[in-house]
Design a binder for these strands. Structure first.
Length: 394
DNA sequence: AACCGCGGCAACCGCACAGTA
DNA sequence: ATACTGTGCGGTTGCCGCGGT
């Protein structure tokens, strides 16, 4: 494209803050004639401004449908949800918040929400739990910060429910997200234990401890995950699950066990969709445990014996190696594709279609604090892990 | 009272892209 | 095909008010 001079380069045009008189002129003109050509507008309206400045002033401040004032909790949660899906697409986010401008949302994010997420131990760029040591240092604050919101995901009313009793794509994604919340908890727990571990030997006792914890029937989210898998097995839509499984190859033993339970609950179903679903699931489990790529990932990101856990996520992409970034991207690519399909077929569904792991990063602290049993469970884990005798003591 | 640092926010800058002559 | 315009967008800047010293 040919270069072109900035619209405000012309000498004599005013820049900077708008006066009430200028605002009045602009509003009066647009109310009478519409804005028409922004370039021609300033002259016609008697303003010594460039057209671009007039357009910005109108769209960001003077437009009559602008909603001013503090962002509500709902708006705040919606912004976080959408940002986890859309990133810094402020105009796209603004399109879901009537009366709010992209500029306003951008400022709100940069000055408030970003800091809030950081305080919660969530990376505002990746929406994943941070793994730096500050997370552990601030654990009490982290638990308190979980009161920030009751539910960061799927509180939007765009979830449309089932059709003829069959879960739709959005509901299925919601289930997937719920499970990913649990996975995120494992992830954080694993990270905590890794850091607290007195040794980093190849035997990696904390990981072994997690293995036994995951097999403990008293573990709070074991039953929840079983429930979710049961519901998913009854779904006629195989969406995202194979992606989820391939995203966390080390979870095979755990998920397979859950799936057996789910299968048991569903043994009366004979739908061909169920059959296909289960075939896909098992195939995904087999594939994810056998591909060389996953083994490579295990070698590079996971420590030798902790293949049960997904790879750790650095606090920010800035701190990743290029290869790690590539792996992280490829791990979420499949689910992102599902989200893209949803968004293109129904833009409003984007609100509910965050990638499971990303949204889980925001969700896990809430779940952590909401359920007393789970809360005390985690406190026990943390206390135990903080013990000087950990991991030897039971 | 004066100074300083900081946060919030409006406004600006420059690039990208679609449309049009 | 090319040159140009109009508009949208994300990143950045700089002003202003406020609180602390």
């Amino acid at each position: 494209m040919m270069g072109r001079s900035p619209c405000c380069d012309e000498s004599g045009l005013k820049k900077g803050p708008w006066t009430p008189e200028e605002d009045q002129k602009l509003v009066a003109y647009i109310e009478r004639h519409g804005h028409g050509s922004w370039r021609a507008l300033p002259k016609l309206a008697g303003l010594n401004r460039c057209g671009k400045s007039c357009r910005l002033r109108w769209t960001n401040y003077l437009r009559p449908d602008i909603k001013r004032g503090k962002f509500s909790d709902d708006e705040e949660q919606t912004i976080i949800n959408l940002h986890s899906v859309l990133g810094n697409k402020w105009s796209a986010i603004a399109s879901h918040l009537p009366g709010r401008t992209d500029n306003e949302i951008k400022n709100f994010w940069n000055t408030h929400l970003r800091k809030k997420l950081l305080q919660m131990g969530i990376d505002p760029v990746t929406h994943r739990p941070r793994t730096d040591l500050n997370l552990l240092a601030n654990l009490p604050q982290l638990l308190a910060a979980a009161n920030l919101s009751s539910s960061l995901m799927f509180n939007n009313n765009s979830i449309t429910g089932n059709i003829n009793g069959v879960p739709n794509l959005e509901d299925t994604l919601r289930l997937l997200e719920s499970d990913a919340t649990q996975l995120a908890k494992f992830h954080i727990l694993h990270n905590i234990l890794q850091v607290l571990s007195p040794s980093s030997s190849s035997n990696n006792p904390p990981a072994t401890q997690i293995n036994s914890l995951l097999c403990n029937s008293n573990m709070p989210f074991q039953s929840q995950l079983n429930d979710s898998l049961t519901r998913m097995a009854s779904s006629q839509v195989d969406v995202g699950l194979t992606s989820a499984v391939s995203q966390f190859p080390g979870l095979n033993p755990f998920i397979s066990s859950s799936f057996e339970t789910a299968q048991h609950h569903q043994n009366t179903s004979s739908s061909c969709y169920d059959h296909q679903f289960k075939q896909n699931f098992k195939h995904a489990c087999q594939r994810s445990s056998s591909t060389s790529n996953d083994k490579q990932m295990g070698a590079e990101i996971l420590s030798p014996d902790d293949s049960l856990m997904p790879g750790l996520v650095p606090a920010s992409p800035d701190h990743c190696s290029a290869h790690q970034i590539e792996l992280m991207s490829s791990n979420t690519e499949l689910i992102n594709q599902k989200v893209d399909v949803l968004m293109s077929s129904n833009p409003s569904s984007a609100i509910t279609a965050a990638t499971p792991f990303e949204s889980a990063a925001a969700n896990w602290t809430n779940d952590l604090i909401e359920d007393d049993a789970t809360h005390s469970y985690w406190r026990d884990i943390i206390d135990q892990a903080s013990s000087p005798t950990w991991p030897i003591s039971s």
